[in-house]
Design a protein around this nucleic acid. Structure first.
Length: 531
RNA sequence: GGCCCCGUCGUCUAGUUAGGCCUAGGACACCGGAUUUUCGAUCCGAUAACAGGGGUUCAAAUCCCCUCGGGGUCACCA
């Protein structure tokens, strides 16, 4: 049997990080078994522009490198893969159930059903469908239909049954059909409900494993009953826990964003995003928050980092392995290693995986990732081509710029965790620098320091070739002559040339800033300090 | 409230199916130290958990019972 899994998002205009993990587990299970992964679009209930709403979802899959074997853009043997285009299938199935007496037309009004519900609640018993429409004769039903009386199709729950599944993750789970209300399967307007459409599609598309979030566990008895009524082979189920809010246990939700900001590591990520997006012209764009996959792409994460983080959120191999490439994951992933309890989303851990995968990159690869940010922030010139799936290839960058960025990225080393981190050192690209006031006062505007700086300036101005080694030995010997600790000058030099007390080695910084600008900046610092 | 799921360091988890190798292991974060005359990275170290209560057993995180807690879901949403 070929394993066939599916992920069935509804096109909402964004890709939720929790949904992405569900998709990943589906994809991995299919790939692990040499099976087929299907993308199916649940747009039964869709008014808006599908293309626009689907875009970010496909974009996320492409970015992460999770390809689908059947679905949008490529079709497949069970096309169409949009539920909105599969109406015939649902209607036919509903008609069949109706004919076989396994479903019925329900003419009861909403008010009446609400009332039944309230009554049941008041009497502390489980609400069950009253099934009044079942009393209607065929002629009465035909007359009502002819008269255009609104009605829905309900599935007639076989109340004498117990439903048992053997879930890959939860084990044996059991329900009593005698406690279930008759679910609506077709709306008054003839469109199907989710629980029905899913069953039809899963069966027709030959899905073998339904891997989905735990919140669907309560939909399962209805779907099992429906499958049985239709005579389908039951798929296997695996209900994975949902992804929980940072530091909490509730389901991660985009609506509670403001609340998550109380979490320190979540806030850190949000702030990072705010800062980056304001520099590259994406400020305030909807859907760019850490609940959404696109956030990570736009802020400069690596697919490998996100994939690794998502994988470890609710799955583990053993007691020590943390790092997995996608290829590793395909080899090693099994459903029985999925954890049962919901996993809180931890931005810090995400960043730490990211850090690891970034450290695996060559300087050239890092440069390629950083360039789009520099261009978009207007720090260098170049042309960014926005190809989906490989966002932000930069072309037409002048040689000397490329050279410079390469030297910079090499000097920055593992200070670059996200590609957008390169924006933190904008002072290497600008003529004007901004002093960190406190540091300037502490390190430069102090008795004797300007004079020391001035002396060193003269030495290096006369130096024929600037190298890390030359600059360093000149500084050391000069300080020795002056009877000053080298640290005093080193700090003063750093603040004078970059303005800030952080960054690569001070001589690297000097070389990066360049001869003319360094000399000018030292002069400016001396002037500033002696005012 | 009904039905269902889940409970191991702050967080992600290993260990639970087959009780002893668990004075509960790893990772992230935090804290301390070394190193780097900055920052980061790195290395070393520390703190830190079996929800509670009963049982069964020579032995319980693991098996049984009860309690408590958290969550999901109860639509002509998906």
């Amino acid at each position: 049997m070929t394993v066939r899994t599916r992920f069935a998002p509804s096109p909402t205009g964004y890709m939720h990080i929790g949904g992405m993990r569900t998709a990943l587990f589906n994809w991995l299970w299919a790939r692990h078994n040499g099976g087929t992964f299907i993308l199916r679009i649940d747009d039964t209930d869709q008014q808006r522009n599908i293309d626009e709403a689907l875009g970010p979802i496909l974009r996320a899959f492409k970015w992460l490198g999770l390809n689908w074997d059947e679905g949008p853009e490529i079709g497949g043997p069970y096309a169409p893969y949009f539920q909105s285009q599969r109406g015939e299938l649902y209607r036919a199935a509903a008609d069949r159930l109706l004919r076989e007496g396994k479903a019925y037309r329900c003419f009861e009004t909403k008010e009446q059903i609400d009332q039944d519900r309230k009554l049941a609640e008041a009497e502390k018993r489980t609400y069950l469908s009253a099934r009044r429409s079942l009393q209607l004769s065929d002629t009465e039903i035909q007359q009502s239909i002819a008269a255009g009386q609104p009605h829905v199709v309900r599935f007639l729950v076989p109340r004498d049954q117990k439903i048992v599944i053997d879930d890959h993750i939860r084990g044996r789970v059991e329900w009593d059909a005698g406690l279930m209300a008759d679910p609506v399967i077709m709306r008054g307007d003839g469109s199907p409900l989710y629980n029905f459409a899913t069953v039809i599609d899963d069966a027709q598309m030959q899905i073998t494993h339904v891997v989905r979030a735990e919140e669907h566990l309560s939909n399962t008895p209805t779907q099992v009953l429906l499958h049985q009524a239709l005579g389908n082979t039951l798929p296997q189920f695996a209900h994975i826990p949902y992804v929980a809010a940072p530091g909490g246990k509730e389901k991660l939700s985009k609506r509670k964003l403001a609340q998550y900001r109380n979490n320190a590591s979540f806030k850190k990520l949000c702030d990072k995003g705010d800062s980056v997006f304001s520099q590259i012209g994406l400020a305030g764009q909807a859907g760019l928050d850490p609940v959404m996959v696109e956030f990570y792409e736009r802020v400069g994460f690596l697919p490998a980092g996100i994939l690794n983080g998502l994988l470890r959120l609710g799955w583990s191999l053993d007691d020590k392995t943390e790092i997995f490439s996608l290829a590793d994951a395909v080899k090693l992933f099994t459903l029985d290693r999925v954890v049962k309890a919901p996993a809180g989303f931890d931005p810090d851990k995400m960043v730490s995986f990211q850090q690891h995968w970034m450290s695996q990159l060559s300087v050239e690869e890092k440069v390629a990732g950083c360039l789009p940010y520099l261009v978009k922030a207007g720090l260098i010139v170049g042309h960014v081509s926005n190809v989906p799936g490989s966002d932000g290839r930069v072309e037409n960058v002048p040689h000397e710029t490329l050279d410079f960025v390469t030297r910079l990225v090499a000097a920055l080393g593992d200070r670059i965790r996200l590609f957008s981190d390169v924006l933190d050192v904008a002072y290497f690209f600008k003529d004007e620098i901004v002093y960190d006031e406190k540091e300037f006062t502490k390190r430069v505007a102090k008795e004797g320091v300007p004079a020391l700086l001035a002396g060193y300036r003269d030495r290096i101005a006369a130096m024929p070739e600037w190298t890390v080694q030359n600059l360093e030995s000149a500084l050391k010997s000069y300080c020795e002559e002056q009877g000053q600790p080298a640290g005093t000058l080193i700090h003063a030099l750093r603040i004078s040339t970059t303005g800030v007390p952080i960054g690569p080695g001070v001589y690297e910084c000097v070389l990066l800033v360049g001869r003319d600008r360094v000399l000018a900046r030292i002069d400016a610092a001396i002037r500033q300090a002696t005012i």
